[in-house]
């Protein structure tokens, strides 16, 4: 399998450039990390519509709230761990409670952030954002999908969280693929099990699936790029079909996609799921591939856990 390896944040930066061109209501904001989040591309081309607030996430979220009240569409951007954590109250009490059209973009999701260590790896962001009323939560799987998701979120009215990642990862969707908010994508169909995933860990899931195929197991792979609103239909459809499901995510076991799916299944169709996620612990420094393996999220480890589960 040969795929382009591109950081997902590049797709975001490219989409912002496009939005700069087609939608003059779009304002991009950053908290002193514009090079890292790729908002610097927009800043160079549209300096009058770029606001750097300095290292002040709480103020950034609420300045964005003020801009949104004037019909602007602010994309508030910084590391996911900082915006969702430090500015949670601002997101909750001003943005979501007032149902404002503010887009929160958290780059550097997951442990694959690597050497910066646990302080910089957002592993609880999906959970924190998903529990908020009025919020939409989107976790694209590669730079192509991040580009599409960003454009779609600019059209959506209301608060939204977009999770990005730092590391270059394999491109697993193509430009021609459709992208609809709230509608999961079936990446491949197989008859032996179903794997639901979200985010860039999809590249590892696909590798794991290739390994499984070598052992005669053909999985269906479903990309849950929208965590909220959750595509419940597809979850129930495949739960009924396979009677057990696998969920893979680069997020704490608590609060993320696995929690969301479990909640649907417990109520509607209780079956066993194998939830491959980060256990109750923080991340740490290391090379991304080393960390993924150590946390049970490398293709090799994913494959092994799936085999143990379905056999």
């Amino acid at each position: 399998m040969k795929k382009d390896i591109v950081p997902i944040r590049d797709g975001y930066g490219k989409a912002l450039l496009e939005l700069g061109e087609i939608n003059d209501k779009v304002i991009v904001m950053d908290a002193d990390l514009s090079t890292s989040t790729r908002t610097n591309w927009f800043a160079e081309k549209y300096p009058q519509r770029f606001v750097d607030v300095g290292i002040a996430e709480q103020n950034m979220v609420n300045v964005a709230a003020g801009l949104s009240l004037e019909d602007k569409i602010p994309f508030v951007t910084t590391y996911g761990v900082f915006v969702c954590g430090r500015a949670f109250d601002q997101i909750r009490n001003t943005v979501c409670y007032s149902d404002l059209n503010v887009k929160i973009v958290g780059s550097h999701g997951g442990i694959s952030v690597g050497p910066d260590g646990g302080s910089h790896q957002a592993i609880e962001d999906i959970g924190l954002m998903r529990i908020l009323p009025n919020m939409t939560v989107v976790v694209p799987c590669d730079h192509v999908q991040a580009y599409k998701a960003t454009l779609k979120l600019a059209e959506l009215k209301g608060p939204a969280y977009l999770r990005l990642a730092r590391e270059p990862t394999a491109t697993i969707t193509s430009e021609a693929d459709k992208f609809s908010l709230g509608k999961a994508d079936i990446l491949q169909k197989g008859n032996d099990c179903a794997i639901f995933f979200t985010g860039t860990i999809g590249a590892e899931v696909i590798k794991a699936s290739e390994m499984l195929k070598n052992e005669g197991i053909n999985p269906t792979i479903i990309n849950m790029h929208t965590i909220k609103p959750l595509d419940k239909e597809i979850i129930l459809e495949y739960a009924k079909k396979f009677k057990k499901l696998v969920v893979v995510e680069e997020h704490l076991r608590t609060g993320g996609l696995g929690s969301a799916i479990s909640s649907v299944l417990t109520e509607k169709y209780p079956i066993r799921i194998k939830h491959i996620a980060i256990e109750d612990r923080f991340g740490e420094s290391g090379q991304p591939e080393v960390l993924l393996d150590a946390f049970g999220l490398s293709a090799r480890k994913i494959k092994k856990q799936i085999l143990d589960f379905i056999q």
Partner: peptide, 9 residues
Amino acid sequence: SVAAGLALS
């Protein structure tokens, strides 16, 4: 902060 956002706008 919200007021500042309005003023900036």
